[in-house]
Amino acid sequence: MSVRTAFAAALKVLRKKRGLTQVALSGTITQSHVSQIESGKTSPSLAAIIELARVMELSPVALMALVCAAQDELTPSEVLEVAKEDLQSISLLNAAIPMEVEAKPHPGVTAAAKTREKVQALKKKGFSQADIARKLEMAESTVRRHWHRSV
């Protein structure tokens, strides 16, 4: 069974179990989008999955356990046990995940900063823009761009 079909089936069962209509289920998601999800015509985004779970007063993990159970023909309990074992095997079951993602500058930004440093160093030594362009083998327009910026 495809994930889309499994999600449709799980959502329908869960919505009916909660006694909700598609209209009642639609919070920030429109009723027509809920209908398309339930008919398997579209897949929900992660934000939509979280919103649907919130409206049904259910954790997103529980909703996805139902989806995975439908897809793999398992029970939600079996799915959660496998997930627990997976997280335990990589030592993340009881780990707190940091919310800050280490920002790495784009390689182009790094390269531009190095070029700027070279241009500024030669500028301090008294080289002209044309001399720097020849020395660093780059266009004078590139040198000009870095000439007026500080390191």
Rank of each mutant, 00 (worst) to 15 (best):
M1R: 10
M1P: 07
S2Y: 13
S2E: 12
V3M: 14
R4M: 08
R4W: 04
R4Y: 05
T5W: 13
A6F: 00
L11V: 11
K12E: 11
K12M: 11
V13L: 14
V13P: 06
V13D: 14
V13S: 15
R15S: 02
R15T: 00
K16G: 06
K16Y: 05
K17D: 14
R18K: 13
R18L: 06
G19W: 03
T21A: 05
L25E: 01
L25I: 04
S26E: 07
G27N: 08
T28P: 05
I29T: 09
Q31H: 07
H33R: 15
Q36N: 12
I37M: 09
S39F: 05
K41C: 07
T42N: 11
T42F: 06
S43V: 13
S45V: 01
L46K: 07
L46A: 10
A47C: 10
A48E: 03
A48P: 03
A48T: 12
I49D: 00
I50F: 07
E51I: 01
E51C: 04
A53N: 02
A53P: 00
V55W: 06
V55A: 08
E57W: 03
S59C: 08
S59T: 12
S59Q: 12
P60V: 04
L63D: 00
M64H: 01
M64Y: 02
L66D: 14
L66Y: 13
C68A: 15
A70S: 09
Q71M: 10
D72Q: 11
D72G: 07
E73Y: 01
L74V: 04
T75P: 00
E78A: 08
V79C: 03
E81H: 14
E81S: 09
E85C: 06
D86I: 04
D86A: 14
L87R: 09
Q88F: 13
Q88R: 15
Q88K: 14
L92M: 12
L92T: 04
L93Y: 07
A95F: 02
A95H: 10
I97N: 03
P98N: 06
P98S: 10
P105Y: 09
P105M: 10
P105C: 06
H106K: 14
H106F: 07
G108H: 07
V109C: 11
V109H: 08
T110S: 08
A112G: 04
T115S: 11
E117L: 13
K118E: 10
K118T: 04
K118W: 02
A121L: 12
K123E: 01
K123V: 02
G126A: 01
G126S: 03
G126T: 02
G126K: 04
F127K: 01
Q129R: 15
I132G: 01
K135P: 04
E137H: 14
E137D: 15
E137I: 15
M138P: 00
M138C: 05
M138T: 03
S141G: 06
S141H: 08
T142L: 09
V143M: 02
R144W: 15
R144Q: 14
R145D: 05
H146N: 00
H148Q: 13
S150I: 12
